[in-house]
Structures are given as structure tokens and as C-alpha cells.
Design a protein around this nucleic acid. Structure first.
Length: 157
DNA sequence: GCCAACGTTGGC
DNA sequence: GCCAACGTTGGC
């Protein structure tokens, strides 16, 4: 059984269009234990991902991606030249993990106000007060609704 | 640019 | 192990 997730990216850092260009990407730079644990323990190849653009106007879901590689050490944590460098990360204890994702389908942007306005999305973690996790779970039902708003029948995926 | 919410750090 | 100080996220 595949699971569904939402991953946040700031479009000026790594936009959906770049993921399409790259064909796939390693999701480096997550430095939050809860988000790391989700990637490390729960995300499986084939899981579906809502690719969310945060910190822009308006914030929105930009497309559908898929997990194409399961968790492995985030090497940027061990690279002193990286802005994600963490001196506590070592080869023996890499501390931070990442997964790879690949783009599946672009959506008509589904904005945050649209999401908030849809009563069937009540309880979606993204919409909860104070929610900041950059990797978070999405129910199959909510995933399907977001796809539908974005003009995609998720059954066709 | 403001600030609420939340996570992390480090002194004790 | 408590908690104050600080840093970050991210919507507005």
C-alpha cells in the first residue's frame, strides 16, 4: 500500500520546474528530526508526493512527484562547504537522511486559500495552525481531492 | 517586515 | 531534566 506525503520547497530555492528539468532529485537539507524520521522510516519507493511551493504568493501545490529512492545519508551534512553542513554528522552516524523523488505530473496550481476553502480538506496537516514540517503526511482522500482541484484524476496515476 | 509557533541549545 | 534564550519557518 502506497502512502501519500507533502514536501515543501521554496520556489526560489528549488522550484517544481527544476525538478522537471533534473528528472529526479535528492531531497537534501532537511534538518528537522520529525521530518527526517518520516523520510527514514516511512517513505517507500512508489509513494506519492504533493510538491508544495512555500514562502511565495500565494503558496501552492505545484505538482505530483513520486518517491524513487528510499532513505540514505544526506551527504551535504558532511560537506564543510555546504550550507547544510552539520559538524555532528559522520560516516558512522550520518544523522540526516534524504530520499529521492521524481516528477510525475504538473498540476494547475492549487493555492493555500483554495485548500483552506475546501471543507473536505479539514484536518489536513498543512492547514493546521502552527504546522511547519517540511515533510508531512497526507491521507489518500486528501491527496485525491488536491489532485482533483489541480485538474488531475488521481486514479489515472 | 512582522510575528506566532515551534524546535534546539546550553546553563544550571 | 527544566526552562530561558535564541533561531527558524512561513503565512500574512
Amino acid at each position: 500500500m502506497t502512502s501519500h506525503w507533502l514536501m515543501k520547497s521554496e520556489p526560489h530555492v528549488y522550484p517544481w520546474s527544476q525538478l522537471v528539468k533534473d528528472g529526479s532529485t535528492h531531497w537534501d537539507g532537511v534538518r528537522n528530526y520529525q521530518a527526517r524520521n518520516i523520510m527514514r522510516d516511512q517513505m517507500k519507493v512508489g509513494d506519492m508526493v504533493l510538491f508544495y511551493h512555500s514562502n511565495c504568493k500565494p503558496p501552492h501545490v505545484a505538482g505530483i512527484a513520486k518517491v524513487c529512492k528510499e532513505a540514505y545519508p544526506d551527504f551535504t551534512a558532511q560537506d564543510p562547504g555546504s550550507k547544510y553542513f552539520d559538524p555532528k554528522a559522520t560516516p558512522e552516524n550520518p544523522r540526516w537522511m534524504m530520499v529521492d523523488i521524481e516528477p510525475i505530473m504538473e498540476l494547475n496550481p492549487v493555492t493555500l486559500p483554495e485548500l483552506r476553502q475546501n471543507g473536505d480538506l479539514e484536518g489536513m496537516p498543512l492547514l493546521m495552525r502552527g504546522q511547519r514540517l517540511s515533510v508531512q503526511p497526507v491521507s489518500a482522500e486528501h491527496f485525491a481531492i488536491v489532485c482533483q482541484i489541480g485538474g488531475l484524476d488521481s486514479n489515472s496515476l
